[in-house]
């Protein structure tokens, strides 16, 4: 891995921005260069929402994601907006609730029950971002288990540590 450009998209309130911050934090623990940014304004408050993070072995110039190497979409509109015109080798992760249109022929993708796992297995919808982080790190495999745990614990509310670590584990387990 030299440079990963990661974009997480979904609905405001799913905690995806925190998700990208956690990935960035873990990147720093792995001695990588990182750059995290996000969409602001009304979007981040319930509408469509996206967070981005670049994780690289080298110093980062331009800080925005231009050629994503990894995209996750957790809602149908965000799938429509961010999962088109991608490079062939960009990895796409979608929630299994997303209907894949017939004209979408991207090969490099995985559909996982992320929302359902948060809701049913972990038992708390708010952990959807941590379930995602678990799955993403399992796929991209850029951070040690210890470091990703450390990063998660830095960015979850006090009292929810155990729940979120469970979410992280369940997320990782989704990826075979």
């Amino acid at each position: 891995m030299s440079k990963m450009e990661i974009r997480l998209a979904g609905t405001g309130g799913q905690g995806l921005i925190t998700g990208t911050i956690i990935l960035a934090e873990a990147g720093i623990f792995e001695n990588k260069f990182v750059a995290q940014s996000q969409s602001y304004g009304p979007e981040a408050r319930g509408g469509m929402c996206k967070g981005e993070v670049i994780i690289s072995d080298e110093k980062i110039g331009f800080t925005k994601v231009t050629k994503p190497t990894f995209v996750m979409a957790l809602s149908q509109p965000s799938f429509g907006k961010y999962c088109r015109d991608l490079d062939e080798d960009c990895f796409v992760l979608v929630d299994e609730s997303i209907v894949i249109p017939e004209d979408w022929s991207h090969k490099n993708f995985l559909s996982l029950p992320i929302l359902a796992t948060a809701r049913e297995k972990v038992g708390k919808m708010q952990t959807v971002n941590i379930v995602s982080v678990g799955a993403i790190n399992k796929i991209l495999n850029f951070s040690s288990e210890e470091n990703i745990k450390k990063a998660v614990l830095m960015h979850v509310p006090k009292g929810t540590e155990e729940l979120n670590l469970k979410a992280l584990e369940e997320g990782a387990r989704l990826v075979k």
């Binding site: 960035a24 260069f33 990182v34 750059a35 995290q36 940014s37 980062i60 800080t63």
Partner: peptide, 9 residues
């Protein structure tokens, strides 16, 4: 805004 809202090392 580019640097204000950027998170990095």
């Amino acid at each position: 805004e580019i640097v204000g809202h950027l998170r990095e090392n």
